[in-house]
Design a protein around this nucleic acid. Structure first.
Lengths: 339, 339
DNA sequence: CTGAAAGCGCTAACAA
DNA sequence: TTGTTAGCGCTTTCAG
């Protein structure tokens, strides 16, 4: 390990000025003689001086750090947002600190504690729970926070979400319009907020069409491909199986795809399928999958912008932006077979 | 914005001890009376004290921060590694700072500067360039660094890579064994190191089988689905097109898949395909894609471990771990059609 | 066992 | 225009 490097003191000494003057010259604030300033800068350059952000932060109170706590960084949805956030925040010289909650409230609490102790300037969070969130409430009072994908009760901060209910509603409408009445739902337990909203969309659409809710058509699973496979198999091993399936996120859609294939059920001949959240794979399968797409490219940049505005001192009530979804019709839905 | 919070001073005052004693009690080092220690801890608890890491870092010189600079966080390969790194590092109370280089050397330089000024403790990096890396050389001398996926010339630090050449070699061997002699290569320009190694494997295998290298069968593209589509189309629009294609990463494999489909070429009847790097999608397509798989689940944890050892003060020569690859035979290769 | 004091690197009143 | 000084919150000798 070499020594930590050149400090302001070294620069000041080498340039024959005080540390204060050196600081002024390098950060160009206050009054500094042109000549002095230039000299200091040259010296700094030649010594390879770089400001120590930690020391700066100790004074100013904060590091140029923004925390990002998604449910899972491996989920393409959150990875995409991570990418967009980073791009936006980098423009303002902020760094992104990423820590996945793994959809676990306890872990989320720990992570937030940890981020707080690092004196982050802002936070972008996809809360794991819609209700167990007192830790978020208190944090959001201290640190500018933007919630994405899901909102959390009682937390007063900006949020960026999509119209989960509307999207689900539209998907079910579409299936019904294609003649389906026994429509299965593969839903997620952990992402409570979105799962709940999408469930409402499902229920409301069925109700609007006068179709009674049948609990045996709803299967709950964690949001992983593996778990979704099992849940799908359970659903379709029942005597009076659904003719169509709606899955609430892309991982579950993939699981359903695999499960249906393994059961020898063909899409869309035996079963129609619509998934929430578009994904690469959806266009690679045969047939391609009909999905409810979220405007994913807008979520990250907007969240970043809202946060930056708050960091700039913008006051005012919490803003909730809710993007509409869009049904992308591809080839995974057909009329149900006569029995 | 509320005030920054309870400091050690507050705790000390409330517990009627000096700051030094309070620090000792809370960090349990040095001599402290049991009773005093307990009292301090209770007071700290009740006041909601949390240590300010920035201040701690100013003294110790470093924040519990590890930088991770992948080529692109959206690439599932790097996203997976990000996840694994985070899990491992979290155990040691370290936070992961993620910043994508976007495969751009200039950006990589900027990011590394930025990370350095944050006094990160360690760095995990997938270098963008195999040769333009003086900035890495100097950084690696200051900050424990582990290179992943690619190595960089002259940089003395641990690295974790896979046997790119061997993997490519095996893939081509397999194609040749299936009767192919006109084997196309879709290669990546930016990820110079891996691309180069995989190219070697391609060349060496051909040579070993006495097949002359035909430059018209090699197409270069950036590592994105879109660019790979175009490159594939160029390749297969030639008069004497290849009977098989080897793609050097999963994004390019996806691009090739889409391109071949759009050209009405069926896999494996018209064209056989083998890709480097396994990916979800490979088992969703029909036929499933034969790939050279990397032991991706081992890369992140190992890189984290190597780094942590260095942080623990481990000395010694740079270690280069090179994992073998594994050919996973699925359904995308067949004997070439007679013409 | 505990406290006083110095100082990590930087910035910002306040003086000069 | 520049320097002096104090101090951000914490840890760590060194005395007591």
């Amino acid at each position: 390990m070499t020594r930590k490097g050149v400090t302001l003191k070294d620069v000041a000494a080498a340039a024959n000025v005080s540390r204060a003057t050196a600081a002024r010259a390098l950060n160009s604030y206050g009054y500094v003689g042109d000549e002095t300033a230039q000299r200091v800068q040259e010296v700094a350059e030649s010594l390879g001086y770089r400001a120590n952000r930690v020391a700066q932060a100790l004074r100013s109170g904060q590091l140029p750090l923004i925390g990002y706590v998604p449910g899972d960084i491996q989920n393409p949805f959150f990875a995409r947002i991570a990418h967009d956030l980073e791009t936006e925040l980098r423009k303002e010289k902020h760094n992104l600190l990423i820590a996945s909650s793994e959809e676990d409230v306890a872990q989320e609490k720990e992570l937030l504690e940890s981020l707080r102790s690092l004196s982050i300037r802002g936070l972008i969070l996809a809360p794991t729970s819609a209700t167990d969130n007192r830790h978020i409430v208190s944090l959001a009072r201290e640190i500018p926070t933007v919630l994405i994908d899901r909102v959390a009760k009682n937390v007063r901060c900006d949020s960026v979400v999509v119209d989960n209910e509307g999207g689900a509603h539209e998907a079910i409408d579409y299936l019904v319009a294609n003649g389906h009445r026994r429509i299965g739902l593969l839903r997620d337990d952990s992402r409570i907020f979105t799962a709940q909203e999408r469930l409402f969309g499902y229920q409301n659409s069925l109700q609007a069409h006068g179709i009674a809710l049948d609990e045996t058509l709803i299967s709950v699973s964690r949001s992983t491909v593996e778990q979704a496979i099992e849940a799908t198999i359970r659903l379709f091993n029942q005597p009076n199986r659904p003719t169509a399936l709606f899955t609430v996120d892309s991982l579950m859609t993939q699981g359903a795809l695999l499960a249906l294939r393994s059961m020898g059920l063909s899409i869309p001949n035996d079963v129609s399928l619509v998934g929430f959240d578009d994904f690469n794979l959806a266009t690679f399968t045969d047939p391609q999958i009909t999905v409810v797409a979220q405007p994913i490219s807008e979520i990250g940049p907007l969240a970043a912008r809202l946060l930056l505005e708050r960091l700039d001192g913008k006051k005012g009530a919490a803003r909730e932006v809710r993007f509409p979804t869009r049904l992308i019709v591809r080839g995974s839905v057909a009329k149900p077979k006569k029995r």
